[in-house]
């Protein structure tokens, strides 16, 4: 019997191209079977999730969202607050991936409904390891809602 393994869909909201590339590299280094889609701020993330505009007409529904906090136009906090109010999207887990280790940001992220908060390690190997642990949890240990 032939079975097809579906890749996990990750939406990364990150305005810093170097950091986005690092996430891409870490996913490939860890051999995580995932399609990574990148948007540059919260507003674009909603365009992706709601399939608005020609660019996102065929956008898939992500299994997981990785969210930077500090972005222009709509930042991570505003995005989190809005997605967790949206009945059609609130069951997608959102993990904050940021350079901020300010306690207020950590508390606020969980308060707004984040399912994890990772401070980006500066060291590249540690960064790769962090993404591996994220992958182990979300794509191996836990059960996620199926694509609807």
């Amino acid at each position: 019997m032939k079975t097809t393994i579906q890749p996990f869909i990750i939406l990364l909201a990150e305005d810093e191209p170097a950091d986005a590339n690092l996430v891409k590299l870490a996913i490939s280094e860890n051999r995580i079977l995932a399609d990574l889609h990148t948007v540059v701020d919260g507003r674009e993330a909603f365009e992706f999730l709601r399939r608005q505009g020609p660019r996102f007409a065929d956008a898939p529904r992500p299994n997981l969202i990785l969210l930077d906090l500090n972005m222009p136009r709509m930042d991570g906090r505003e995005f989190l607050a809005a997605i967790k109010q949206d009945t059609a999207l609130k069951d997608i887990p959102v993990v904050v991936l940021t350079t901020s280790d300010v306690e207020r940001d950590i508390v606020a992220s969980y308060h707004l409904g984040a399912s994890g908060y990772v401070t980006k390690p500066v060291d590249i190997n540690q960064f790769i390891d962090a993404v591996r642990q994220l992958g182990d949890y979300w794509f191996s240990l836990v059960r996620l809602p199926q694509q609807s």
């Binding site: 950590i106 508390v107 969980y110 994890g116 990772v118």
Partner: peptide
């Protein structure tokens, strides 16, 4: 595995 994620990797308040 739960512990590795929540108590090792993830920042908690």
């Amino acid at each position: 595995k739960l512990g590795q994620y929540w108590f090792e990797r993830i920042r908690l308040p």
